[in-house]
Amino acid sequence: MTSTTIPALLTETRTIAVVGLSAQTNRPSHEVAAYLQSKGYRIIPVNPTYAGTIILSEHCYPTLTTAAKVLSEEGVTIDIVDCFRRPEHMAAIVQEAIAVRARCVWMQRGIIEPVAAAAAEKGGLYVVMDKCLMIEHKRLS
């Protein structure tokens, strides 16, 4: 694990890719993303189902790799990859997060995948598992 802390991470980062972000406002991914956006973070929607649409006033990308490529043209990097996908999808997401040089992979509450977490740490990413980014932000604010 890279040496950082959740408070430092939330203070120092500005761009959060939300993998699995739903356009449906009643879904937890949408609630968390809207909250974080209201706190000044730039939210990058990543969901192949909604690719090409606008969610929370941001273009939705089919993959993390595609999002990172477009954002790099704007001089923007992805700091946190916030995951709203089942554990069996984490290994592939972690590989993309490492490839795009994200700073952290954050697995939301209920998502525990030790093998993917170990791979992320080996790849230099800070890892958070089984915690809600919104709850942690509120707790530290």
Rank of each mutant, 00 (worst) to 15 (best):
A118Y: 06
L64F: 12
V70T: 13
Y50S: 14
V105T: 02
E74C: 05
K69Q: 12
P28N: 02
V105F: 07
A97Q: 05
I55W: 14
I55R: 15
P45V: 13
A33T: 08
A116V: 06
V94A: 05
M90F: 06
I54N: 15
A68D: 04
R42G: 08
M107R: 01
Y61P: 10
A102K: 02
E74I: 00
T49D: 14
K39C: 11
A67S: 10
V46F: 13
V100K: 00
G75E: 05
I55K: 14
K69C: 02
I78V: 08
A33D: 07
Y61D: 11
P45M: 14
H59S: 13
D82E: 07
P48S: 10
V94R: 04
I80M: 01
V115M: 09
P45S: 14
T63A: 10
E113A: 11
R42M: 11
A34R: 12
I43S: 08
A51I: 09
R101E: 10
T63K: 10
W106G: 00
T49W: 13
D79I: 02
L56I: 15
V105R: 06
G110C: 03
E96R: 03
L71K: 07
E74H: 06
A97I: 01
R27G: 03
I112R: 09
A99E: 07
